[in-house]
Each structure stands twice: as structure tokens, then as C-alpha cells.
Simulated assay, not measured.
Amino acid sequence: MISRWTVVVARDDLTKTEVLHDELPALTDGEALLRVDRVGLTANNVTYGVIADVIGYWRFFPTTAEGRGVIPVWGFADVVESTVDGLPAGTRVYGYLPMASHLVVRPKLTSSGFVDVSEHRADLPAVYNSYLVTTSDPAYDPRLEDLQVLYRPLFLTSFLLADRLADNGFYGARTVVISSASSKTAFGTAQCLHNQGVRLVGLTSPRNVEFTKSLGLYDSVLPYDAAVDVEPAVYLDFSGSADLRATLHDRLGSELVKDISIGLTHQAASADPRSEFFFAPEQLRKRTADWGSDGLAQRFGEAWRGFTARAGDWVGVVGHSGPDELIEVWQAVLQGKTNPNTADVITF
């Protein structure tokens, strides 16, 4: 039997972690075993933990440890054992993975890879159940794996969020205000909105102002306590700060035409009725219906290539390995101790 390790967190306190060791079950017909190889870890993964009960993120990779859950990550894995024709051992895939050394999947093959049709994932958002085989992925570049595990899931959210704003005429706004402007999903959104006819204002902590300015994506970058010009604006909340939201509503009043929550770096889900939560799979379903899968892939691919052409100059990759260093990075991300100009990749 093959042994595996899994990092679990307390559902009611994400700082409490534990490494569990057990044996993988023998595969049954129609299953494959993935060995997780390389993943990225960002504030986006914190969001998965904060709203896990709302969206169902704990259900993707269930654990028998009482009161514990497994945080999802994005990355690459290799098929090491398979009972599925057309998915041999040695196949490399990209997709949604657990903080664990291995994952058993039940693949249904597609033109680009497979969908995990395991029973416990059947009613969960399809975007998280799809895995791309690298040899069938036109966006895959083996030299850019680190950028892909760090940015591709975030940039898909950025791409879809920016598309939703444009699709709705920016709700009549002339300005888009973005909090946590130094965060990867935020500046990915700014990249997608750049040169679209709206003014981009980035809000960030004083220590991150210079880095955020250096990206060259925002028309102005302000510390959180600075005044924002009163004009029709959309607020994209990547921070989850109730105090910042209240301040902006007080300053802008009726000129704040839309308030959208995306990230939760302050680790508190908003209960404020003035804000709506952006759920990327909804816009993904809409655009798949509008453009077709190929049309969506083409548009995303163009945006992704434009982003990666610049992203390597913005952020330096810091490598880590194994469950202990994974936990160290997790704790640093939770506590907001990571630097905006570095990004963490963990190899298993």
C-alpha cells in the first residue's frame, strides 16, 4: 500500500494545522492516483478556508478528522497509477488539488483532460472538477509552471471579474477602486481593465504603495487612509475590511454605484448587504454559453499570454518543499507576513 500525508486545518481556526499520515486505498476500476508535485499558495487559498462552508470548499477533499478540513490549492500532479484507458501513468495534469501528497480521482476523459466525477464532487462547481492534461493544453509552457500554479487560477478570476464589469458597462461608473491593490488577483484584474476607458485607483497599505505603483497598472495608488475622489465608482473589495468599506460608503455616498467582494485577506466574510459576492463560476458559465468553450479559451488565452509576458518581472518566486514548509508558508499568508513582490511555490 502507498502511504500519503495530508495537511489539515481546524475549520473554526485556520491557524491550527496538523499533518496526517495514512495509507491510500487500492484503486477500483475507473480510478487513477495522482501524485501532487507542485502547487502555489496565496491569499486566494485563505479565501477558500474562510468561505468554505458557504461555497462547499471543504467537500472537495474530505477528511475523516473531526472538525478538520483540507484547503484546496492549484497545481500540477502526475498520474502514478491508473485503471482508466487513455490516462496512463506518467500523464501530467494541472488542476484543483489538496494540501496532500496524493489524490484519488475518478476521471471522465475530455478533449483537454478529464473531469473528476467522484460522487462527493458531483454537485460542486464544474470549474474545480476539471483537470487539464499538459500535452493538450495550448497555454502550457513547461518553463512557466511556477507562474501557472501561482497566477492562472487567480487570473481566471481577474479575467472573469473584469469581463463582468465591462459586460455591464461598469454600472455607469468612471472609476474602479480596488483594495488590496498589491495582491495578485487585484493587479491581475487591473491588468485586464487597463486601457478600457475607466480610471483605476489602487488602495493598499503604506508599505506596499511603492511596489503597487511600480506595476504601472493603476492610474493612482493611495494608502488606505487617503481620500478618494467623489465620482461614480465601482468598488472591488479584495480585502474584506468592514472598516474600509464603511469609510468608502461614507465618502462616496450615492456615487458608489456598485460594491463587489472578491477576496478576504482580512479573513472575515462580509455580511454587509451593500456588498455582493463575486462567484467566478457564474460568469464562467455565462461566457461559456455566450462564446462557447473554444471562444472562451481563445479570449482567456490571449489575456493570459499578455499577463505572463509581464508577471515574471513583477514578482520573484520563492521555492519551498514538503508539508512542514507548506505549513510555514500557510501561516505566513494567514498572518499577512508575505511580501507583495515575492510568491510562494511548494514542491511535494
Rank of each mutant, 00 (worst) to 15 (best):
L222I: 09
R305P: 01
D85S: 09
T212K: 03
D229K: 08
V93W: 05
T157V: 15
D78I: 05
A186K: 04
G322A: 08
E210N: 07
T204K: 08
F348A: 04
Y140K: 10
V257K: 00
A166Y: 02
W74H: 03
L24M: 15
H194P: 02
Y171Q: 09
A89E: 15
H120M: 12
L109V: 12
I2W: 15
V345F: 11
A181K: 06
A173R: 05
A26D: 13
L236A: 04
G263T: 02
K184N: 10
L165I: 11
P142V: 09
T308M: 00
P98N: 13
S179P: 06
V84A: 03
P142H: 10
P88L: 04
L296I: 01
V176N: 05
R287A: 01
T347Y: 15
N339Y: 13
H194I: 04
S270Y: 01
H194D: 05
A162S: 14
V46W: 04
Q196D: 10
A233L: 10
A173G: 09
G295Q: 07
Q191F: 15
A162K: 00
A190K: 08
P142A: 11
V315M: 05
L154D: 08
A139Y: 03
V117D: 14
L244Y: 03
Q191T: 07
L217E: 06
A242E: 15
V36C: 10
I55R: 06
T288D: 05
E18R: 09
R11V: 08
S118Y: 13
Q331E: 14
L41E: 06
Y94I: 00
S112R: 10
A32V: 09
V149R: 00
W330E: 01
G306T: 01
K184Q: 13
R299T: 01
A10Q: 13
P206F: 10
Y140Q: 11
E210W: 08
A10E: 15
P72G: 05
L203K: 04
L248I: 05
R245D: 09
A343C: 09
V221F: 07
T308D: 00
A246S: 14
G322D: 12
R285M: 11
I51L: 08
A166C: 11
D250A: 13
P98A: 12
V201P: 04
R164I: 06
V234G: 00
Q148I: 03
R251F: 11
A77D: 04
L109H: 11
A343H: 07
T247P: 00
K16I: 07
V209Q: 07
A65T: 13
P340H: 10
M99T: 15
A280F: 03
N129T: 12
Y235V: 03
I327G: 00
A26E: 14
F159E: 02
D12H: 14
L217Y: 09
I51W: 01
Q196E: 14
G240W: 01
N339P: 00
L27A: 08
F61Q: 03
G30L: 12
T110K: 09
A32E: 08
V133L: 12
E23I: 04
L87D: 04
L334K: 00
A166R: 10
L256I: 06
T347K: 08
A227S: 12
D29C: 05
A268E: 11
V39T: 11
V209S: 08
E302R: 01
E23N: 07
E210K: 08
L244A: 02
K213H: 14
T135L: 14
P323C: 09
G56N: 07
G113P: 07
S293E: 15
